[in-house]
Write a protein that binds this DNA or RNA. Structure first.
Length: 581
RNA sequence: GCACCGAUGGUCUAGCGGCUAUGACUUUAGCCUUCCAAGCUAAUAACUCGGGUUCAAAUCCCGAUCGGUGCACCA
């Protein structure tokens, strides 16, 4: 009866992964707490993301405020576009998008405010499409949490609805940090906030959530990727625009997808590949992952191409967990306009270009004494003239309504040949954006398994196992004395110490039978259990038990820390960890 | 935000006007125990919240909150 979501959430609650926030006061929809194990799991997922994007790709991480000022979100479009004008039927209480209702009457209802929309509704006698009842006043519902900065509440602030704007706002500083070179990227892992109208689906739609975003600034004329060859052969499950029309996804190598023009360009494809590697490494099931291309009408108007990584969940179907978009120069242009600052990169040409340019040189030695304060304005006016106007016998200008005659000898002009070494361009932005909470939930769901542990002559019983990759499991090893005896507890404690010294998160458990303790650890995904028995006292060896296979090997106690480290981080196979038992 | 359904120890649940509120698992303390939750002894722990009806409410009514489902919303 209970579906997997319920089973996973029950376990998550009971064992300290995640639970609804503010339970003490009855709980609040859209907010979840990460418990001791959940916070650790999430941290490990984030650190793998860092390993890939920050360490291996070199896109340094920044940290900007979670509160943003109004200008930022005017530029991003969130102040205007992140809200919807709603109207409710007074009779049946259905809510409708007011701009949708007047779409057929108006050309551009998006530009109207709430009051104007109310007027249009009334004037045209528009009724509730459901029951024909009267519609109420239109109000704006903005999905951003609003607050005020400083006393008096005069200055508006908003909790950021995405982390991305931080990187755009810091563009100039980042450009300098990367010594004026394209491409470069910056990342941020942090909280974002959206005041969802009615969040459902548990952890899938949150009002406060964690994003990991990279903004990679590239040369718009060159969207190749230097390391493309390394990923060209990765095969992805692609659900392209055509595929969606036919309702089928297709497995294809990245190289082929770019060649066929399914993925817009190498750089975007490379990001898909990175995303794939990341999701595989943290433990998403490969058969429950697909990359879905946004349909043309679904894509933002400025986007060149956009793909979502979607993960299959038993309860929620295909869930978007990553968005990878070529946002072109939209964001930088918007911030350039709002801030009245040029946000460009100077790019040198391979070889300087020769350009013919018409140059006007007013002789300030003559104009200055003659016109005094007006000389500057006159010089500028002269520069704007065309060759034929300048070569006339007399040059007449109108400055501030005054007719002014200029002597021919006060200005010279010529066509000059110049070498241009480069130009200022607005970079394009490639943005992979990860919803960490959804990924963490998916990991729990995908790694959760119940299996019948058959023991001869005994009844069937279920074993709950979280098959998390060793690298993300919150508790990395359990140390268990076989029996509650002082002589076994002592060496066990020594092992705990050794492991902790090397940064392994280890739990010690001597309560209950050994089987019970193995099961307790299976349930939270502890990949390895180290058991101290009487043989340990004789020859200094312990057993290591593998969570997934339940197999055991016997290995030395003195180098146990290195051994476990290799198992977790270096892909050492369990068989190589010791002697088979 | 609307409609329908639901809410009892950590978890799952019994009770549907009157009990000291059922049971299981978990947990804790101890015993036992030489490798996969099953033994023994004991302990801890719950009626979502606020009103109302009634001599009496976990139980009936109203409202709120949270959760589920459908509609709407979802950069």
């Amino acid at each position: 009866m209970a579906d997997k979501y319920e089973q996973v959430l029950e376990l998550a609650k009971r064992r300290g992964f995640i639970w609804n926030s503010f339970e003490l006061y009855g709980g609040t929809a859209g907010f979840y707490d990460y418990g001791p194990l959940g916070a650790m799991l999430k941290r490990r997922v984030e650190n793998i993301w860092r390993d890939i994007f920050v360490i291996n790709e070199g896109y340094y991480e920044i940290e900007s405020p979670t509160i943003g000022i109004e200008d930022v979100f005017i530029a991003s479009g969130h102040v205007g576009g992140f809200s919807d004008p709603l109207t409710e039927c007074q009779k049946c209480n259905e809510a409708f998008r007011a701009d949708h209702l007047v779409k057929d009457i108006m050309d551009n209802p998006d530009t109207l405010g709430a009051d104007e929309l109310t007027k249009v509704l009334n004037k045209n006698n528009i009724k509730c499409p459901e029951c024909g009842g009267k519609l109420g006043n239109v109000y704006e519902f903005n999905l951003m949490f609003k607050t005020s900065i400083g006393p008096g509440g005069k200055r508006a602030g908003y909790l950021r609805p995405e982390t991305a704007q931080g990187m755009f706002v810091d563009f100039q500083r980042l450009l300098k940090f990367y010594r004026d070179h394209l491409p470069f990227g910056a990342t941020q892992i942090g909280k974002a906030y959206r005041n969802e109208i009615s969040p459902r689906q548990g952890v899938i739609r949150l009002r406060e959530f964690t994003q990991a975003e990279a903004e990679i600034f590239i040369d718009p004329r060159d969207k190749t990727h230097p390391k493309f060859a390394e990923v060209a052969d990765i095969v992805l499950n692609l659900y392209s625009q055509e595929g969606q029309a036919e309702g089928s996804s297709e497995k294809m190598s990245i190289n082929e997808a770019v060649k066929k023009g399914i993925i817009a360009h190498e750089f975007l494809a490379y990001c898909l590949a990175m995303t794939y590697r990341f999701l595989m490494r943290v433990g998403v099931s490969p058969d429950k992952l697909r990359f879905r291309q946004h349909m043309k009408d679904e894509m933002a108007h400025y986007a060149a191409d956009c793909w979502d990584a979607e993960i299959l969940s038993e309860r929620f179907g295909w869930v978007e967990v990553v968005g990878i978009a070529d946002r072109t120069d939209y964001d930088l242009k918007a911030h350039a306009k709002q801030s009245e600052t040029e946000l460009t990169v100077y790019v040198s040409y391979d070889t300087p270009k020769k350009i013919e340019r018409f140059a006007v040189k007013p002789d300030m030695g003559i104009l200055g004494p003659m016109f005094k304060g007006k000389a500057g304005k006159i010089a500028n006016a002269l520069k704007a003239l065309k060759p034929e106007e300048l070569s006339a016998d007399a040059i007449e200008l109108t400055i501030d309504g005054e007719q002014i005659k200029i002597e021919k000898n006060a200005v010279t002009f010529e066509t000059v040949c110049e070498e241009v070494h480069g130009e200022n361009i607005i970079p394009h932005v490639i943005e992979p954006s990860f919803g960490i909470d959804r990924i963490v939930y998916s990991l729990l769901e995908h790694s959760y398994s119940e299996e019948e542990a058959e023991e001869e002559g005994e009844e069937d019983k279920t074993r709950i196992v979280l098959r998390l990759p060793a690298e993300v499991a919150p508790v990395q090893a359990a140390v268990l004395p076989l029996l509650t005896r002082e002589e076994l507890i002592k060496p066990a404690n020594e092992i705990v110490k050794m492991l902790r010294k090397t940064g392994i998160l280890v739990s010690f458990d001597d309560s209950g039978t050994i089987g019970r303790r193995y099961r307790r650890n299976d349930e939270i995904g502890t990949p390895y259990s180290i058991t101290v028995d009487y043989q340990t006292l004789d020859d200094g060896t312990v057993t290591i038990r593998d969570r997934d296979s339940m197999k055991q090997v016997r290995a030395g106690m003195s180098n146990i820390a290195d051994n476990i480290h290799e198992l977790i981080y270096n892909g050492k196979s369990f068989e190589d960890a010791g002697k088979k038992i």
